[in-house]
Amino acid sequence: MRKLTGSELVFNILDELYSITIKSGEKELVKRLFELKDFILNERPASMAVQNILRQIGLYILEHGFINIDKYIIELRERYENSLEKAAEIMSRRIASGEVLLSNSNSLAVRRVLKHLSERGKNVKIYVTESRPGGEGLLLAEYAESLGFEVYLIVDSAVRFFMKNIDKVIVGAEAVASNGAIVSKIGTSLIALVAKEARKRVFVVAPVMKFSPETLYGELLKLPEYDWRSLISEEEITKLPVDYKARVPLYDVTPPEYIDAIVTEYGLFAPQAIPLVLSLIEKPITSPGRSFEEIVNSIKALIEV
């Protein structure tokens, strides 16, 4: 699950929870929710969409018990799918045929934007960074190629070299904080800075599910770091000094001033307007005061009692 993008992880988890609900029942469901909580906290602490989804499921159970939980999971999946589609569609309207885009990593939201562009017959060119560590950029390049677009693959270091050629930078997000900052694949903040310097527009495509309600209450987003294993193979490391040290952050924070708009299923907003957006939409993720962790914990208590 490490390699999945934030949105892929949501779908993956919802599908899994659905099948557990149908096949194994509520105890197994709660057990799995609990495991997922630990996995998210340890491995993907910035993965806000998953946290929000788990919180939603938790709140549902606390309120209604397990009646129709399977239907609720399907409903959540549909809602997420629709929000992703809608956000991508809105983004694609902002892109004209002939424009040159740049993206990094392999965001599902960005892929949906490309799909919409392709369906509308808008022909774009896209620069994709390799996106070390992980190198997911190669997957995005493959996908864009399969849609028939002209694709340029570059190393992460070459962003400023090519920024002159770019019209718009489009990225996904792992989380959106209440001040409009985004957490995204490592390197995104550098790309946004370079875009700003060159006066190129930066768009973040992120369904509202990616918004972090906790940050509204002053919570800091946690960013995981890996070690050398994400940079080099066991074989290659033998050529380097023993005790080879590396710091490999997986995400970074792009400040709102480098983002021109965050594109959600509700429309396209200035990043600074995020608190307003949160207050306008229906309850789900603005309700907390309780973190997804607390909510999942209290369900466990419910079952054990």
Binding site: N104, I186, G187, S189, L190, R247, V248
Partner: peptide, 13 residues
């Protein structure tokens, strides 16, 4: 004392 980072982590660090 040296620590390697990926090129994409420059602004982070």
């Amino acid at each position: 004392p040296v620590v390697q980072i990926p090129d994409s982590a420059v602004r982070y660090i």
